[in-house]
């Protein structure tokens, strides 16, 4: 608790010092970037944060600072302390933020807003055989992490917490390093991070990748500006999130997929039937009258 307070004070100090020169100027916003599983390289994450912040600054017409986070704890703390206006985060992390984070847009990559996850190992085998083995996993809020694996990656067909010993790591790089260092028998990483010397034991379905979230009720303004922001490497332009689709994802993470139930078979649609609705002789060819062919010559019998 104490440590927290100190950090908060420190944060306030830092903010204070940052804000001091611009006191008369419009309020400064901060963009957080936490992409521990989407971008493997810390430098890349930093550059992206800077580039996006300057784009946003230009479009929003107010100063935007960038802050890149390497660990979920740091990021989550910054959020809870209200330091961030908005953030680009891995979807699983956004889900863990809960209602505080309002999803605004997907940061798509190569035209994809989703990605698959893989359970990789150095040896051949199956997930089944990894029972009781260690699985390196990028750490999020903690208790919610196994839920993401069980509910989303494994689709509810296997309980990650029961099946594996979960080994939390800060990011994808460390997960893979842990694997190499035999600190874990397997690692859970997005498919794009799988290198050739690894064995893919399992691939998940499609899972949302990076999302832009609003953290301080400025979602509308943000949405308006996004169209003009355009692509910021290594991502494409943002794609607005439609309706409740992210809520569904959040729900999936929290509750898992519903239990499968038998589904009804759908018989083919009943089509119209012409003779049922129209008298059929009205549809057949209309033959001309043949009365003229009944004519008889005026010949008379005579003897």
């Amino acid at each position: 608790m104490k440590a927290h307070r100190i950090v908060a004070l420190l944060g306030a100090l830092i903010l204070g010092t940052l804000a001091t020169p611009a006191f008369a100027a419009p309020k400064k916003s901060t963009l957080g970037v936490f992409l521990a599983t989407t971008l493997a390289d810390g430098q890349e994450r930093f550059q992206y944060a800077e580039a996006l912040a300057s784009k946003l600054e230009a479009e929003l017409g107010r100063p935007v600072a960038a802050k890149s986070f390497g660990r979920y704890e740091d990021f989550a703390r910054a959020v809870s302390e209200g330091l961030l206006e908005f953030a680009v985060v891995d979807a699983w992390a956004a889900a863990q933020l809960g209602a505080r984070a309002v999803p605004v847009a997907y940061a798509s990559r190569s035209g994809e807003t989703q990605q698959r996850w893989a359970i990789v190992a150095l040896q051949k085998g199956t997930v089944k055989e990894l029972a009781g083995k260690r699985l390196a996993l990028v750490k999020g809020a903690g208790p919610a992490d196994p839920k993401f694996v069980t509910h989303v990656v494994l689709g509810g067909d296997l309980d990650a917490q029961k099946h594996f010993k979960l080994v939390p790591v800060p990011n994808v790089e460390s997960a893979l390093k842990m694997l190499e260092a035999k600190g874990a028998e397997a690692a859970l990483v997005p498919v794009s991070h799988v290198s050739k010397d690894m064995r893919v034991l399992f691939r998940s379905g499609r899972v949302p990748g990076a999302v832009l979230v609003d953290l301080k009720g400025g979602a509308e303004a943000l949405r308006g500006a996004l169209g003009r922001v355009g692509a910021v490497a290594p991502f494409d332009a943002f794609l607005a999130i439609q309706g409740k689709e992210f809520d569904d994802f959040r729900k999936l993470v929290a509750q898992g997929p519903p239990r499968r139930q038998p589904v009804f078979a759908e018989a083919p649609e009943v089509r119209v039937s012409a003779p049922v609705l129209v008298k059929s002789d009205e549809l057949g060819p209309a033959l001309p009258p043949f009365t003229q062919d009944l004519a008889v010559s005026a010949d008379q019998p005579d003897d």
Binding site: T126, V127, K128, G155, D157
Partner: peptide
């Protein structure tokens, strides 16, 4: 495919 992946 998921089941196949999980159970080999």
């Amino acid at each position: 495919e998921r089941l196949q992946g999980l159970y080999g």
